[in-house]
Amino acid sequence: MTHDAPPDDALSTPEPALHRGVGDRLNWLRAGVLGANDGIVSVAGIVLGVIGATTDRGVLFTAGSAGLVAGALSMAVGEYVSVSTQKDTQTALLALERRELAEMPEQELEELAAIYQAKGIPADLAHQVAVALTEKDALRAHAEAELNMDPDEVVKPWQAAWASMLSFTVGALLPLLAALLIPAPAQVAATVVAVLVALAITGAVSARLGGANAQRAVLRTVAGGAVAMAVTYFIGSLVGTAV
């Protein structure tokens, strides 16, 4: 039994304009959300630890600012290194596919047809699909079928690094400013409340980006931040008393 070749539109399955570049956007959004969350928790821990040890606002400003700068730079470097490794892997895989397509096109065509056949498409139709996609854009066809990768969406290390650094800074400013601007009697409580609200927001956003359960993500993020603040405040109190 033979099958009529599917129309080009069905073979190419072009992405809607709204979805093009979505992987690129998710890359820096993910880095941004994680950076903000780390900035909030890290600097909240520092400032509450300092408050537990001393009431000197100069010390609080110095420690909080140092934590903000060091954390932002650390996040940027870490994200750049991590995403660069991912980019190197993607680039190498795409280069290998290009070489194989140039050196052994027939074998690559058979491999692509076998992939579609393994997904349940009849052998003759799978071959027609493979031929049509190869004629349209061989590299894209193989990258998507074999590597689950869009060749136009290779990750960008500098984009992720800047997003991570800037979001860490914004997140870190919240507990630092709350601790510096609010008078001593309400200083700790106000800082804790501001941090927990901010963590609930970042938890909800990260869950939405990943398609996960928002309530579970918010509870996990808030609980982790609360524990971190409690521990650092307790240690700061112990150190301050001992000194």
Rank of each mutant, 00 (worst) to 15 (best):
residue 161 A to K: 05
residue 175 P to C: 07
residue 202 T to N: 03
residue 146 E to L: 13
residue 213 N to H: 11
residue 190 A to P: 14
residue 177 L to E: 09
residue 146 E to A: 06
residue 144 E to M: 14
residue 158 W to S: 14
residue 212 A to T: 11
residue 210 G to N: 10
residue 202 T to F: 04
residue 191 T to V: 07
residue 200 A to D: 01
residue 187 Q to K: 10
residue 201 I to Q: 09
residue 143 A to E: 12
residue 202 T to K: 00
residue 149 M to T: 08
residue 210 G to P: 04
residue 194 A to K: 05
residue 193 V to W: 12
residue 169 T to E: 08
residue 153 E to Y: 01
residue 196 L to W: 07
residue 205 V to L: 13
residue 156 K to C: 12
residue 191 T to M: 09
residue 200 A to W: 00
residue 141 A to D: 10
residue 197 V to A: 13
residue 217 A to L: 06
residue 167 S to Y: 00
residue 185 P to H: 10
residue 156 K to A: 15
residue 188 V to C: 02
residue 154 V to G: 04
residue 166 L to I: 06
residue 212 A to P: 00
residue 171 G to D: 03
residue 163 A to P: 01
residue 207 A to Q: 01
residue 195 V to Y: 06
residue 165 M to L: 11
residue 148 N to H: 15
residue 144 E to Q: 15
residue 207 A to R: 03
residue 177 L to K: 14
residue 166 L to V: 11
residue 164 S to R: 07
residue 191 T to C: 13
residue 196 L to T: 07
residue 180 L to D: 02
residue 140 R to N: 12
residue 172 A to I: 01
residue 152 D to M: 11
residue 148 N to P: 09
residue 179 A to Q: 08
residue 182 I to W: 13
residue 185 P to V: 00
residue 172 A to R: 06
residue 167 S to C: 08
residue 165 M to Y: 02
residue 170 V to G: 13
residue 207 A to L: 01
residue 155 V to P: 04
residue 187 Q to S: 05
residue 160 A to H: 04
residue 151 P to N: 11
residue 185 P to I: 01
residue 194 A to Q: 07
residue 163 A to T: 04
residue 177 L to P: 02
residue 141 A to S: 13
residue 161 A to W: 02
residue 195 V to F: 05
residue 185 P to L: 09
residue 201 I to A: 15
residue 153 E to T: 08
residue 210 G to V: 01
residue 151 P to C: 12
residue 179 A to T: 14
residue 170 V to R: 07
residue 217 A to V: 06
residue 202 T to R: 01
residue 194 A to M: 13
residue 157 P to I: 12
residue 146 E to Y: 11
residue 148 N to A: 15
residue 149 M to R: 03
residue 199 L to K: 09
residue 198 A to T: 05
residue 173 L to F: 10
residue 205 V to T: 09
residue 152 D to L: 14
residue 183 P to Q: 08
residue 203 G to Q: 11
residue 163 A to E: 03
residue 173 L to M: 15
residue 168 F to G: 00
residue 192 V to L: 15
residue 201 I to T: 08
residue 171 G to S: 10
residue 147 L to N: 05
residue 164 S to D: 05
residue 159 Q to I: 14
residue 149 M to F: 04
residue 186 A to P: 06
residue 150 D to M: 05
residue 154 V to R: 06
residue 142 H to A: 02
residue 163 A to H: 04
residue 194 A to R: 04
residue 161 A to E: 03
residue 182 I to D: 04
residue 176 L to A: 07
residue 181 L to C: 04
residue 187 Q to W: 03
residue 208 R to W: 08
residue 161 A to L: 03
residue 149 M to G: 07
residue 211 G to W: 00
residue 214 A to E: 11
residue 170 V to E: 12
residue 182 I to Y: 08
residue 171 G to T: 03
residue 143 A to C: 12
